[in-house]
Design a protein around this nucleic acid. Structure first.
Lengths: 187, 187
DNA sequence: ATTCAATCTAAACAATCGTTTAGTTTTAGG
DNA sequence: CCTAAAACTAAACGATTGTTTAGATTGAAT
């Protein structure tokens, strides 16, 4: 009936994701996206609607990317040790070839904190809430902890994870790992 | 000989600082600065050169603003307790009237991590290095700690402070304080 | 082979970015 | 009071933002 697309949406979104991951939303322009994705603006708009659509698709691609770590974390059964392993896995991503520094979710969470974009905010909040629930679940595996302690420790770890992701943009792997070790000394 | 300035540079920079503190560098436009500072673009440029100049002046104003906390921290003589107090003082700033969320230095550190602006980067690095030295000094007051432990703990605390500042944009005061308490349990 | 809708290229859109400039108003010194 | 230099207003600058559109090209179905 008509011409075929000369690109695969998953492939070009993976490249867009890397750009957003490195530069954030506002500091990534359509011109940069055009160059990095390797397709024309028209194609970007016909596939994803607008810049915001490209970003949402990139966030989803990022979630898929980190899904293996997340699944491993969810299905683990050792309690606190699983959380620690999750932290290690999270910083290890940054050293994979082609990876950017930091965490797209955390960066987005920070960048959109002062914006009025309920869609992105809701997405980030659900992600954080989900992570918190898993952490609570693992903490409870140790038994012998009262509810207050569990919640306090969960908040602590969630914030530590947040800080770890933010700092991983500028700190070294070694510093990250030292940080993780000391974080879990108080759990 | 000529007309007098109808504004005080310190006053308008204080307003610019609040804007950068809230929105970051790129997400603050000259138009926003014009409105917030209450003076014309011409006046902004004649006083501070360009947008970058306004930002540098804002960073300096921020340093002055947090100087009282910093001086108190430097001159304290109790060791680890001083660091903890410094953390508490740092989060307390955010609840002062007219204050913005988070920390301008940390936000700037993160935003400029992927930029090529050696001037701002050098300024941020010197700030962080300075903070680290003070932390090391306080840690050594306790005596009985070997050099390696001190450095490891200093890195941990610096990263914790970084994370605390990043998270304070989206977390509550209570969560911050719980986090501080647990952070110092492992020191 | 012809048709026609989908995909491409490339140019242009209005709006905004940071910056400059021309022209008016103010004000202290001679 | 007049002069001249500094500070003001407001408009415009070229470049870039995100977005749209006109026209050429492609390719499966008739």
């Amino acid at each position: 009936m008509a011409r075929k697309k000369q690109y695969i949406e998953e492939e070009v979104i993976a490249k867009a994701m890397n750009l957003f991951w490195r530069n954030g939303y506002e500091n990534t322009s359509m011109q940069m996206l055009e160059k990095e994705m390797g397709i024309n603006k028209f194609s970007i708009y016909s596939s994803f609607g607008n810049k915001h659509g490209v970003f949402i698709a990139s966030l989803n691609a990022y979630k898929v990317k980190i899904n293996s770590i997340f699944d491993k974390f969810k299905s683990a059964k050792n309690g606190v040790a699983d959380i620690k392993q999750f932290f290690y896995d999270s910083v290890a991503i940054n050293d994979e070839p082609g990876s950017q520094k930091g965490c797209l979710v955390t960066s987005t969470y920070n960048e959109f904190a002062v914006k009025e974009d309920e869609m992105v905010k809701a997405e980030m909040n659900s992600f954080m809430d989900n992570l918190k629930e898993i952490i609570i679940e693992k903490l409870k595996m140790d038994g012998s902890k009262d509810e207050d302690t569990v919640l306090k420790q969960a908040n602590f770890l969630l914030l530590a994870k947040h800080g770890l992701a933010a700092a991983s943009r500028v700190n070294t792997r070694k510093e990250m790992e030292d940080y993780i070790e000391m974080t879990f000394e108080s759990i």
